[in-house]
Simulated scan of single mutants.
Amino acid sequence: MSLPSMLQRFAIGGLMLLLIGCNDGTSDTTIGPAPIGDDDICHVCGMLIEAMPGPKGELVLDGDSEVTKFCSAAEMLVFLLQPENVERLSHAWVHDMARTDWDHPGNDAFISAQEAWYVSGHSRPGGMGHPLATFATRSDAEAFQREHGGIIEGFDELDIDQLTHMSRANHP
């Protein structure tokens, strides 16, 4: 092997070690839903999240090191489904309302937003209007629907225009 070839391999190896050393050890796969505290505000509307009943939303976009929090699942989805954000989604979470209290959803009831079932147009009031109700299973969404009405949809069926209209109607 020639000396320039050996030097080139040494330089590449050194560069790889340097880049590995620059990694702070955190990865978005280690970021999970964060507890919602008394002073957390919604990323979209600026309202206190804890003051709002119904399911909340949280997400992490690629490149983010912290969780972004929202006062409702609909607020999060309106933000997420914007063209500049949808391709950057790393993780998103909503409350499983079958496992938690409607008025004060618990921090231990977050589920993947992409795997959740959503009920819109139901009769259950939230902080402002009727928020999307979110559930881990379709059967729980159906039980909620039987009691409160509405339409059940999966994540991939959600319509950005309908969500935006819902969000605007709830934020006069």
Rank of each mutant, 00 (worst) to 15 (best):
P35R: 10
L59P: 01
M52D: 03
E147T: 15
M166S: 08
F144M: 09
L18C: 15
V78S: 07
S2Q: 00
S5Q: 14
D39F: 01
E66I: 15
I20T: 12
R168W: 09
P131N: 11
D40Y: 06
E142H: 12
R146S: 14
F110S: 04
R9N: 07
D101S: 04
G54C: 07
P55H: 09
P105W: 06
S65D: 15
S5L: 14
F79H: 02
T29W: 03
G25T: 01
G37W: 05
G21A: 13
N85W: 03
F79V: 03
D140M: 08
G37P: 02
S65I: 14
K69A: 12
S90Q: 10
E58T: 04
S112R: 09
I41Q: 15
G129N: 00
L81A: 04
S90Y: 04
R99L: 10
S72P: 04
I36C: 06
A51D: 11
E115N: 13
C42W: 02
F155E: 05
E157I: 08
P125I: 10
E142G: 10
G121E: 10
D39Q: 11
D96C: 03
A113D: 05
T164K: 11
A113C: 08
S5A: 15
H165W: 12
G106H: 05
C42V: 04
M97L: 04
